[in-house]
Measured scan of single mutants.
Amino acid sequence: LVRYRTISKIPQITLNFVDLKGDPFLASPTSDREIIAPKIKERTHNVTEKVTQVLSLGADVLPEYKLQAPRIHRWTILHYSPFKAVWDWLILLLVIYTAVFTPYSAAFLLKETEEGPPATECGYACQPLAVVDLIVDIMFIVDILINFRTTYVNANEEVVSHPGRIAVHYFKGWFLIDMVAAIPFDLLIFGSGSEELIGLLKTARLLRLVRVARKLDRYSEYGAAVLFLLMCTFALIAHWLACIWYAIGNMEQPHMDSRIGWLHNLGDQIGKPYNSSGLGGPSIKDKYVTALYFTFSSLTSVGFGNVSPNTNSEKIFSICVMLIGSLMYASIFGNVSAIIQRLYSGTARYHTQMLRVREFIRFHQIPNPLRQRLEEYFQHAWSYTNGIDMNAVLKGFPECLQADICLHLNRSLLQHCKPFRGATKGCLRALAMKFKTTHAPPGDTLVHAGDLLTALYFISRGSIEILRGDVVVAILGKNDIFGEPLNLYARPGKSNGDVRALTYCDLHKIHR
C-alpha cells in the first residue's frame, strides 16, 4: 500500500512540481520508500527539464536528425535550378540546329562534286560548318556529364541527390541515346576521305529529338503553341524528305545512260545542264529549293507536275512521300480545326451564355430598361472574369491554397485601402477568403433606401454616388468604403439613402 501511494504521487509531482519531503505519510521509514524516492526525484528532475525545454521552444527539443539540413553532394545540380533551365534551352537550340543542318550536310555532301578544292585539302579548321559541328559534339558530351550530376524525382516524389543513384537512373534511361548522339564521328573518321560515311553517321544526332519531343509535351495545353509546333514538325519532315529526294537524284545521276532524272530535267529547265562528264548542272541553292518544293507539294497532295519522278527509285520514294503525307494530314492537320476551336472556345461560351440571357429575357418578357441593365451587367461581368467562376475553380483546392490565391487576387485593395494598413498577414488572409466580388454598370442602383444592410462594401474600381431623395450626399471612388460596420450592432440596419454607380464599378463586399 505504501508503495502504491508513493507511485500514485508521481503525476502530481510531474505537473505541480511538489516535493515529496513535505508529505508526512511518505516520510515513514520503510525500505521500499527509501529505494523508490531517489528514482522519483530523478524522474521528476528529468520531466521538469523536458517541460522547461518545451515551454522555452528551444531548438534542442527536436531530434538531432530533424535539425540537420538535407545534404547535397558537391557538384550536384538541382533539376529545378536556373542554371539547369538555361542549359536545357541551350541544348534545345543545338538539337534544332542539328535537326536542320545534319540531314542537309549528309545529303548535299554525298558524292558532291561542286567546283573547288576537296575538304581534305583545305583542312578541318577552315570549314565553318565542321567547326560548328565540333562545338555541338562537345556541348552534347558536356550535357552527358551534367546529367550524371543532376537530381531527379523518383516514384515516391522524392528528390534524389545521391550521385550513385543518379548515375544508375541515367544509365537506365537516356544515357545510350545521348551517348550515340554525342559521338564525334568527324574526329574519329577525319582524314579518311569518307565524307559520305561521316554525313550518314552524323544523322545519329537526330535521336535527341525524342527527348525534345517529350520536353515539349508540357506545352500541349496551349493551343497556339501546339499549332506552332505542328507546323514546325511538318516543315521539318518536309526538309528531311527534300534532303533524301536530292540524295536519290544525286546518286543516280552519274550512272544513268539517259538523262531522265529530276536533276537533269531541272538543269535543262533553268539552262544549267550537266555536261557529258557529269559536272556542271544547277547550283546547290536551286537543287535544295526545288527538292523542298517537290516534297511540300507531295505532302499537301497538290502535285503540280513541273517536278516529277521519272526513275524507279524516284517513283518509289514519291509513293512513300504520299503515304507520309496522308498520315500527316490525319495526325496534324486533322487537329488544326480542334485547336482553332479551342482557341476561340471563350468567344463561343460568351455567345452561348448571351443567347441564354436573351432567351430568358424573351421568355419572361423583361421590360426594355431592365433588359438593357441585365445585358450590360452580363457584358461587364464577362469582360472582368472571362466567364470563369472563381468560386467553382477554387473549390477543388485546399483552404490554405485558397487563402493564398484570394490574398493575391485582392492584393491591390488590401495594400491601398486604409482600414487594412497594419493588419497582420493572417488577418488579411482571413479577410480575403470572405470577400465576394460584384460588378455594376453605370446607372445601376446597388442599394435602395430602406434596404437591409448586411454587408460592408469596398470599391475596387469606378465611382458611385450616394443620394437622399434627389440630393447627392457624397461621391465615392476607388478604395472608399460604404455599408454597415460589421458586428457593431446586434441587428442589421437599414439604408438611409440610395447608392448608384456612376461608372463601371468593381466592388468587394463582406457579409455579416
Score class of each variant (00 low, 15 high):
272 K>G: 01
403 A>P: 02
261 G>Y: 01
72 I>L: 08
412 S>R: 10
388 I>S: 03
89 W>E: 01
194 S>R: 11
289 V>Y: 01
404 D>P: 02
340 I>A: 12
284 I>K: 03
200 L>P: 01
96 I>K: 01
261 G>D: 03
330 A>R: 08
129 L>M: 11
115 E>S: 14
443 G>P: 01
260 I>G: 06
161 S>V: 11
324 I>G: 08
373 R>P: 01
127 Q>S: 08
377 Y>G: 10
185 F>L: 09
113 T>I: 07
70 P>Q: 03
213 A>R: 10
166 I>F: 01
426 G>K: 03
355 L>C: 13
202 K>M: 01
400 C>S: 04
337 S>P: 01
324 I>L: 13
74 R>K: 07
116 G>S: 07
109 L>H: 15
95 V>P: 01
133 D>H: 01
65 Y>D: 07
161 S>N: 07
397 F>Y: 06
398 P>N: 07
375 E>S: 04
283 S>M: 01
186 D>E: 13
175 F>M: 05
309 P>A: 03
300 T>I: 01
83 F>V: 08
309 P>L: 01
378 F>W: 11
225 A>N: 05
312 N>C: 01
219 Y>C: 13
347 T>I: 04
197 L>K: 07
71 R>N: 07
355 L>M: 12
383 S>Y: 15
230 L>D: 04
371 R>A: 12
249 G>Y: 01
279 L>A: 14
294 F>E: 01
275 N>R: 04
170 Y>I: 01
138 I>Q: 01
173 G>R: 11
405 I>Q: 01
160 V>C: 10
276 S>M: 05
314 E>N: 01
234 F>S: 01
144 I>K: 01
422 G>I: 06
142 V>C: 08
265 N>I: 15
242 A>S: 01
219 Y>Q: 08
363 F>K: 06
266 L>C: 03
217 D>L: 09
188 L>F: 13
273 P>I: 01
332 I>P: 03
333 F>K: 03
339 I>L: 10
126 C>V: 01
262 W>F: 01
396 G>Q: 15
360 F>L: 04
258 S>L: 09
332 I>Y: 06
187 L>I: 14
145 L>Y: 01
326 S>I: 03
118 P>I: 05
426 G>W: 01
